[in-house]
Design a protein around this nucleic acid. Sequence first.
RNA 1: GCGGGGCUAGUCUAGCCUGGUCUAGGACGCCGGCCUCCCAAGCCGGUUACCCGGGUUCAAAUCCCGGGCCCCGCACCA
Length: 576
Amino acid sequence: MDIYEKIVELLKRRGFLWPSFEIYGGVRGFVTYGPLGAELKHRIEEKWREWFVYKQGFVEIESPVIMPEVVFKASGHLDHFTDPIVECLNCKRKFRADHIVEEATGMVVEGLSPKEIEEIIKKKNIRCPECKGQLGQVNVFNLMFKTTIGPYSENRGYARPEAAQGMFVEFKRVFTAMREKLPLGIAQIGKVLRNEISPRKGLIRLREFTIMEVEVFVDPEDLSCPKLSEVEDEELRLITAEMRARNEEKPLVVTAREAVEKGYISAEWQAYFMVISKYFLSSLGIPWERQRFKEQMPWEKAHYSKQTFDHEVYLERFGWVEVAGHAYRTDYDLKRHMEHSKVDLTVFKRYKEPRIVEKVVVKPLGDVIKTDFGDNASKIIKLLKNIDPRELKNSFESEGYYEFDGNRIEPRHVKIEVKKEKITGRRFIPHVFEPSFGADRLVYATLECSYSVKENRVILKLPRDLAPIQVAVFPLVNKNGLPNIARDIWNMLKEEGIRATYDDSGSIGRRYARADEIGIPIAITVDYQTPKDSTVTLRDRDTWKQVRMPVDKLLNSLLDYFKGKKNFNELGICQE
RNA sequence: GCGGGGCUAGUCUAGCCUGGUCUAGGACGCCGGCCUCCCAAGCCGGUUACCCGGGUUCAAAUCCCGGGCCCCGCACCA
């Protein structure tokens, strides 16, 4: 049994998570989080919020999972989130149409339409690679889940394959609500769906999963990240696309600042978020040696991305697995939504000082034009209103006239004025940086990194602030009133917001073992000394050390401990 | 989607090749009780299973067919 199997077994047995719909045989690519798993996942999401929302001064929204077709037409997912598929008419096998053409001809067909691929197949008489049978029509398989909105089938909708589109579609409202300031970070945690052809590997590839994304909107003329200086000395481990092209797999270790200055990372915001990403994963207990950033090759990148670095984690069974993507989406999405919605999604930015610019203005002289051009006059006037004044001026200077459609326009037809204009700012489409995390993969990575074995017993060494259950309360034995005292302590802690459990079944050692296995950081034991002096022992999950402390100090000490203000040894008097 | 391997209680597994002795065995867990002054101790009792459907046969966990799911390889993973 490898560690993956051991973890899967533990997760099922103790109620973290399991494959969904088991009583009906199950469906691949779906999991259900049980009592402990749901809590753990919430904790990871909450931690992400701390790093990527609260500390950044960003804001979170929640937008629908189902979206109308037009959103994905605009976003490009309808066209790009697909694979072209061709079926052999003889053996009925299905193939990636583009791969077949590439193999048979060596042509690069990426970006061609299904029709174009089909034509190539016909023209070159490409046959089924398995049975040499004739190939049929090239169809596209879209990886989005399709549905109808309401009762009319023409009202098509899709489940979102990323949360990002919600942020783009609602950008204007959020921007206004946040009083029109850039940079603006909009975050969202939510379910997304992808109709994977063949999902595998448990939590690593699901059809329905949780994504945690930030879209940071910035001024394209000022791509600098003001917060990079706070973290610029932090080291990153990079495998750039250029290194990958040379088969260089040993990561380059550079500071965030260096990575930007030497051009490995195309923008400061990217580098900044990669450092925050490192901090976040480290806070989940994922060691830095098991993390790296790998740049996507041009053909791997999504249609909207200018540069993408995947944040990868090393897992024993699966090797390096992507848990986050850091993409520079430029103005792609907002631009596309502007085109499709016809709504202006540009932002206006005031200059510090209004600028006075000199503007050359062409004023057509109607009377003269009418006299000279007669019926053509209105056409000429229209032209002159739209013409670039410089072009006209240059033509006058060099030729003495400007020729348009067989008409000679001479300086006497117009009045050219130089006007002073006050410009208070400019309009532009913001550019977007996107860190995007797969929550479920992080749940697994967190579990794998915290899984340990001590004296043949499993200990889940979850960071204390991730543990689904914070403390366990035990009576040392089930007599002499100890259970009642323990229950009182348990109730008190629950009342005060500590997630506590009570267990009096089996020997004390067995109960410690049960608690260790699900990662409860602290066990409180009520023993024979407790009725005498109102003290209890606290036992540390990772070291099995014990300290003794008064019951009335318990709550505050635990709160300090879980906030990270105190370590276990500082909680009380060590018992050896 | 293709090829290979697999599926027996909460978990891990014996049995399958060679059909009947399987009313399906074990270990651990879990629940209740006893015991117990600190690390899966002991004792008593309880709990739970042949992935689903069809076929062959007097008889199927076992053989055959179809499906589901899991694992591995290929493919796929915007």
